[in-house]
């Protein structure tokens, strides 16, 4: 059981849902990333997705792209990110990395998994690794008890979605929209039905991400899933840290997370 399995076992026992913010490691710098992770944990977030900056992220919209570019402009390396994460071992909120396979491959599959695990990371989301290319990494993750979270999207045929659910560990990431990351005001009407269908095919926790940013989204989606992932809305707020007092930005990010968490907890059951 990885930390993620334990998290969902506990949340389910309490009939609660997970709230998972995404941040870009090293934007605006690693020290601030560490503070944000602590703040999010203190606000009661369930898990944090830590984005490893990548030069060519094709699944990302302008907000996350720009955050990756800022981090890379500062020459932030994976080794430094892992050092920062290793300094957070007293934080019980699990962390997973969101990372391109280009980076994992370059570092070596074994080395990446062992290295991030040693830094207290519980799993990886690899948005450009399809289920048919994932065997080797999946095997290493299984051995290391490290979750390899796979993604299902609105364009995934249903038989394929089942296959992805069978090979995913930790949870299943349901991408809400056909598109790239970024805040959306409206989510596709078929979303609820699709996740509902998927719910019947697997016991794996299902979390919804891409586009989620408002309390209304949270209220709408919470009943059909096990958790929600919020990325660009958080990253956009953090981006403002560059020219404002950091304490104020930290508070704002924390309050934004708390606001969505409240919407999540308030759902009628």
């Amino acid at each position: 059981m990885s930390d993620i399995d334990r998290l969902f076992t506990q949340l389910r026992a309490e009939n609660r849902k997970a709230f998972m913010p995404f941040i870009t490691a090293g934007d605006p710098d690693l020290e601030f990333s560490a503070s944000v992770i602590r703040e999010l944990a203190a606000r009661g977030c369930s898990m944090c997705e830590v984005g490893i900056p990548y030069s060519d992220p094709i699944a990302d919209g302008p907000v996350i792209q720009a955050s990756y570019t800022r981090a890379l402009d500062k020459k932030i390396k994976l080794a430094q990110i892992l050092e920062m994460l290793a300094g957070l071992k007293d934080v019980s909120m699990p962390r997973v990395t969101m990372v391109s396979y280009a980076i994992i491959y370059r570092h070596g599959l074994e080395r990446y998994v062992a290295g991030t695990k040693a830094a207290g990371v519980a799993g990886a989301i690899v948005p450009d690794l399809l289920v048919e290319e994932a065997d080797e990494l999946a095997e290493i993750c299984r051995r290391e008890d490290f979750s390899l979270i796979q993604l299902v999207t609105p364009t995934t045929p249903r038989d394929r979605a089942v296959r992805i659910a069978e090979s995913s560990t930790g949870f299943l990431y349901y991408v809400s929209v056909t598109g790239i990351t970024g805040e959306r005001t409206k989510l596709p009407p078929s979303l609820i039905e699709n996740v509902g269908w998927l719910r019947q095919q697997t016991d794996l926790p299902i979390c919804i991400g891409f586009g989620v940013s408002q309390p209304e989204h949270v209220k709408l989606l919470a009943p059909v899933c096990d958790g929600l992932i919020v990325g660009s809305a958080i990253v956009r707020r953090i981006a403002e840290a560059a020219d404002r007092p950091r304490a104020a930005v930290l508070k704002e990010v924390g309050e934004y997370a708390a606001n969505l968490l409240a919407a999540l907890e308030a759902r009628p059951d």
């Binding site: 699944a59 948005p127 289920v131 048919e132 364009t155 995934t156």
Partner: peptide, 20 residues
Amino acid sequence: AAGRFGDFGGRYVPETLTRA
């Protein structure tokens, strides 16, 4: 069938593009 030229090639893209 997997798009491999020996060891090279394959498909490393987001799931969204698989069906297309």
